[in-house]
Every structure is written in C-alpha cells, then in structure tokens.
Nucleic acid binder design. Sequence first.
DNA 1: TCCGAACTTTCTTGAGTGTG
DNA 2: CACACTCAAGAAAGTTCGGA
Length: 291
Amino acid sequence: MRFPSVSVEELLQQFQEAPSEWLDDAGRETLRAIGRFLDEAKTGVDAEKLDALLASSPRTLDVIRLFLGLSQDEMANHLRAAGGGALSGTYASIRDRLKHDHVRATVVSALVRLGAVHTIGAHLRKRWTIRDVLLERYQFGRGRAVKGQLRGRSLENEVEQRLRRLGVPYVARVTFIGRDGKQAKADFAIPGAQRPKTVIESKVYEATGSKQTDVLGDILKIVEARDYLTYFFVVTDGLGWHNRVSDLRHLVEFQQRGMVSMIFTRATLGKLEEAVRYIYQHEYGRQSEEE
DNA sequence: TCCGAACTTTCTTGAGTGTG
DNA sequence: CACACTCAAGAAAGTTCGGA
C-alpha cells in the first residue's frame, strides 16, 4: 500500500485541541475534603481539630497544603524540615501514612510549627475579593514559573558575582570546546570557551522531576568533552536533593572517581572562590599575565 | 520568531522491605 | 510465600525567558 505524502499545512489544519479536564478522582476526593474542612472549621482550627480532620480523610493534608499555598514537593520539604528527622519520604507517602497515629501526631506538630493554625485561621477570617482570586491565579500560574527560574538563576548569579569579584576572565552560559574539539554546555568557562582550564556548572533543586536525572547526563557530557586537566566544579543546592538522594550519590561518586573535581554548595561558595583564585594564580595566572 | 533551556508538578511503575 | 507498604526513578506535561 502506498500513501500520498503529507504536508505540514495539512496536518496543522487537522489538529484539534486535546480534550482534557482538571477534575479526576483524586480531585473529587479533595473537593469533598475541602467541604468537610470548611464545615468543621468555621473560624479557625487548632491542633486537635487538624488531627481529627486528618484522621477522617488523608486528603485533608491537601486542603491544608492549599491554605499554605504549597506544592506537594514544597509541602514535603517543609514537613520534613519541621518534623526534625521524624518524617521522611515524598508527599504522597507521608499522606498515605497519616493513618498511623504516631505519623499523624508528628505531622500535626510539624504543621503547627509551620504556622498552619495561624495561616488557616487568617485565611478563614479574611474577606476574599475578586482581586484576591486574580492574584492567586497569577501567582500560581506565571508566578510559579518565574519563581523557579529565579531560583535557578540565583545560585548562578552568586557564582558569577564571585568570579567577577576575583577579576578572573570567564565566559558565562557557554558551549565550550574541549578535548578533540568536543563540545558541551556549561554555566562558566574560565578563562574562555576555547579549551577552558576550569568549568563550572550550577544547579538548584527545590522540586523533584526528571530534571534531576537529566543533569547527571549534562554533567557527564561536560566530563566527556573537557580536557583531562580541566578542573570541573559543580555548584548545587536546594531541598529537592532530599527526594533524589540516589542521584546525589551518583554525583558524589563522580567526584570520588575524579570525574568532577569538587562539589560545592551555597554554604561553601567561599571555598569555590578560593579554589578558583588559587588555580588561576598558580596554574595559569602567570601565562595570562604575560600576554 | 522560534527553539532550547530553565525549572515545576504530578502520576506511574517497578524494586525493595516488612509482615502475617 | 503472598500481600501490602514504601520509596526511588522516570515520564509527560506545563510556564516562561532569552539568545540565535
């Protein structure tokens, strides 16, 4: 059987909007939990009330999350931090374990520590307007995306500030050329894109997702492309790593095997600065001064 | 103008770990 | 040993920006 060749225009003509809807079974359950929550908590809640509502439906945790304006990942990050080591796992796994009295008690006290009682009360007593609705939509649509980007950029910017302060020549957001003309993308190449002596890549993870696994691939590409003697520093941070410890282990293994020279965090940026300065002065500073 | 890149969010799947 | 539970990893889809 033979088919006529298709054209782009033809296909574009045929394409329809993919049908979809926002309410699935989990959503319906959450809506019910919202209803119960509001019936029970007219003007406010306390720890006991939260515990009772969480016991009656695990979806109550989603309702509380909505009051706090947090994503599942953010909520899990906060709960784990406030739980002081007593809480572990992803958001869904914490929610599933609410049926155990001791887990629920830990979650409730973590919620109290996070100010949930206060926040929920304030929300319940607030008089909401159309302005608030629009603001919320904006905040959780574009606002979320912008927030993510700024988060990623903030660490990159801090690294750049340090480089600038050192007065080291560098190129930012660059495809550098390494060994045998191989190329890879990196955030910073020192002193330049052509066979750099030092390469720096920075990543921040607050949420989970494939990105985290992808980055190991990106890092390997840099490892693959750089000259054998090129220093490669990874600067990373963010609570999202708690959800991807195995990926972190891989990264650490890269460092232990010498594929990555060193892993720095926001807390150790000073050490990165020292390292870059030292390398620049002792290992290739002289040549560039002579030029 | 378009594409790649940055980052999020959520769901699913599969492997490992207990437990009766 | 079967079953339930837990967790890690991956995939699909989304929002936006910025450089070629």
